[in-house]
Design a protein around this nucleic acid. Structure first.
Lengths: 345, 345
DNA sequence: CTGTTAGCGCTTTCAG
DNA sequence: CTGAAAGCGCTAACAG
């Protein structure tokens, strides 16, 4: 009960001042570090703060000109996906190191929701925006809409929008993953990709093609499936692949969801009596846990979404430190990926 | 360049008003829905808003008495863990349905960080708090510190703190999982738990004990490992279990991390030439992907962290609707879990 | 239907 | 070293 004079309302500087027998300014100065305040008054103020459970109102504070809100708006497509969860974690950590916080919104890949979130973030006076674009129209991201609030895009870029971007080395990773299969002697390599992230999908497919092309192998359209987006449809695609007259001996999967789908189908066939030897090897863009325990060899194109998040935050924070934000041209950072072959037995 | 008069600053009502040739109040009213504003003036205002890229300043808005901030503070232990990522998603979704947003902080399980985050959230005038407690002292959560800002705890409760809590049915899930192993004829069942979440750990261990007790089996202390917290140490514990003179024929793993650790060790032994038949069956509290593909049978105690998050948000939002928040006594909700046996082949 | 006034909580001036 | 005044952007309440 200590000091709760008006239950149901947060105390203000004024109340703290009254409680400590000083003026609001002395409270403000004390809370700002205490420069030019007599120690004994500081004591009294801090005691009153504790007594009343006072928290300085950051919203009122940021109303003053020159005072930033300390908020960064983050909109991602799917928080439930560990990839984006770790991405958000990376952003949060890097941003928290500067004393700022993130306001987080989940777009679910819906452009309308993205617009709405960005507008809301702007209204909350965020100092910057980190966005995993959902792919729709992007006029709400144009400079005249965002004023001087810097924007960083992650995972995908938007052409015509000249802002900082962090990407994975999609092309290189897909290229190296495919090449690993070629080096192991495979020549018929299926491709499982998706359409939901057109940008990323196109880049990974490019890496796949480039590796095949380098060895003079032509892409067989029967082996390429790119029209699905969840693990269920990836299972179906895998079934169709394996039911071909000349099935692939290996599969390149452009992401986590597709890898899981493919493995579900592989598991089904194993339980149906197939032997592991007649089932395809797999390269998976995106790591997943226990890949080593899979019944077929799984090579993983591994990367660190948390680090991607940190890097996105770093780009953003650096813009906040620059007075004229258009001074530095837009940067594109490609984060490296790592090939992790299956454990040799 | 449309209308960017003062680049580097967000436009205000005043500027919009000037631009539209009306008073600030007409702008405010128009933005509030347009009641009692002539249509043609509304037109002019909305045009000016578009022209200038105006976003209403929510911080200034919530300064007025009676106006809520529309922010909910969420502090969780590890966003990178898919369990908490989905939890956060559930909270975000439910909260967004009411037009509110979440400010998110990651505690990393550090009590000091938790205090800091909660204080910051209070300063930002959050309307409510959702917290996955880190387990340290909890005086910063006492009612006199939080004023009338409601708090909902998730995953763990804090004794002595009379607030709403959402939990999983830990005891029941562990009990049923263990009983499934007993029903399959196992009598020596190892236990892998952890200490990092003392509360949850104790509850799951209780369920394990209860199932054994019911069958008149005494807990063999050699089979119980509860002092570790990551998948690496869970691997070690599994090794020690399997190296016992009379190793267990099954293992109950109290969470995801432990299950993965145990499976890593099992994989190692398989690659070393062991046959699946001599390796233990597993029950895992917490689902994980591709459990069906594991070389030993894995039964999963499945649950929906996203739904847990939604429920936490629901409890919180219901408090916001009630004038006197202490009217309704603290509620404890236990979310159900589901037993998912391995696919029968 | 529209505008003016006042004040939300805070801090930057400017006086004492 | 301390306080009083003024104003950040917004909107109830009260004129007109």
């Amino acid at each position: 009960m200590a000091g709760v004079s008006h239950p149901g309302k947060q105390p203000t500087v004024k109340e703290v001042a009254q409680h400590a027998g000083v003026s609001p300014m002395t409270v403000s100065r004390t809370l700002a570090g205490g420069a030019n305040v007599r120690p004994d008054l500081q004591e009294r103020v801090l005691a009153a703060v504790r007594e009343l459970g006072y928290h300085r109102n950051e919203n009122a504070r940021s109303l003053r000109p020159g005072q930033a809100s300390g908020l960064i708006g983050v909109a991602i497509t799917n928080l439930g996906n560990p990839y984006y969860g770790n991405f958000a974690l990376g952003v949060e950590e890097a941003v928290a190191e500067t004393g700022r916080r993130i306001v987080l919104g989940n777009t679910g890949g819906d452009p309308a929701r993205e617009r709405q979130l960005v507008a809301d973030f702007m209204g909350r006076q965020v100092e910057g925006l980190v966005l995993v674009p959902s792919g729709g129209p992007s006029d709400h991201l144009r400079p005249e809409r965002l004023g001087d609030v810097p924007l960083v895009l992650a995972s995908r870029r938007i052409y015509g929008l000249d802002v900082d971007v962090v990407l994975l080395d999609d092309v290189g990773g897909a290229y190296r993953g495919t090449r690993a299969l070629l080096d192991a002697g495979h020549t018929r390599i299926g491709y499982l990709g998706n359409v939901s992230s057109a940008f990323t999908g196109a880049r990974r497919y490019e890496g796949y093609m480039r590796a095949l092309d380098e060895r003079g192998i032509e892409v067989d359209p029967d082996l390429v499936f790119r029209e699905h987006h969840d693990s269920g449809s990836a299972s179906d695609a895998t079934r169709r692949l394996l039911d071909l007259e000349r099935p692939p001996t290996a599969i390149f999967s452009a992401n986590n969801r597709n890898s899981v789908g493919a493995l579900h189908e592989i598991g089904r066939r194993l339980r149906g009596g197939a032997s592991a030897a007649e089932l395809p090897a797999l390269v998976s863009f995106d790591d997943f846990e226990l890949a080593e325990l899979m019944p077929v060899p799984v090579t993983v194109v591994d990367h660190d979404p948390r680090e991607l998040g940190r890097e996105a935050a770093r780009l953003l924070l650096s813009r906040l430190r620059i007075g004229d934000r258009t001074q530095v041209p837009a940067r594109v950072v490609e984060m490296p990926v790592r090939l992790a072959p299956p454990p040799s037995d």
